[in-house]
Amino acid sequence: MAAENHFDDLSEKAARKDLGYYLRAIFFGRPARLVVLLLFIALILIPVIFVISTSFKIPLEIRLGGSIFPQQGVVTINWTNAFENVPLFKFLTNSTFVAVVSTILALLVAVPATYSIIRFKTGGWFLPSWILGTYVMPPIVVSVPIFALVKAVGLQDQLMGITLVHAMANIPIAVWLIDSYVRTIPRELEHAAWIDGYSKFDTLLKVVLPLIRPGVMAAGVICMILSWNEFLFALILTYSVRSNTFPIGISRFIGEHGMQFGEMSAAALAGMIPIYILVFFTSRSLVEGLTRGGVKG
């Protein structure tokens, strides 16, 4: 609506029909917008469609390359092979454990930390900028020290090791997402709770937390997605089926007996499903949580 009205406003200028008018009409007119949108959607969806169709192709056809869609018939052999050759369920349970537990740990630290940083200026200017700094830094920079640390406490190739690292790595993002929610809460509410006899911690639990719950939920979902898809730390900290998360698991197993693209596609899709379901059911609060910071500053 707004865009159309905007166009009406230009009617006076449009009367002159200069070059700008034609350029706008071509690039911002309704059909043009539709084409651009479809292009972007296709760009994002084509790889996914490709993976789906590959997982149902006859293995020989995959090797020959060719069209996106199966020409020689649809088979489920890649799927059955994937589940037979690759311990997919083990990887899925590993990844689920890591994602859920690391997210809970990250939130347990991030919620009180964010609250404390904003309300009580904990860490002055240094802590917030340091947190942002760790978020900006490429993870590969700390991969060696992290490996050394995890090994020093004997958690290498164990689920708890990768879980702790994911929790730590996700804290900055969680702080950053929860930040804008905490800022929207009037301080008077906390003052009232203190006077009503609640400690600062009880105030956080009983008054602040219920009010920032959408933000905490969004942060939690983001943390889970990031943990689920995380590759680098999982690669250096997990060596065996015992602790391999999904992305590492499939990348290693499939490689072991030649590049089985069909099996890989099937396995990758199986790993995508849980996280898609999660996002599907939480997309509303997720979108709200991610856009909030931009609107309310």
Partner: peptide, 9 residues
């Protein structure tokens, strides 16, 4: 602290 003062406001 406010919570230790036993006042209502």
């Amino acid at each position: 602290f406010p919570q230790d003062r036993n006042i209502a406001a």
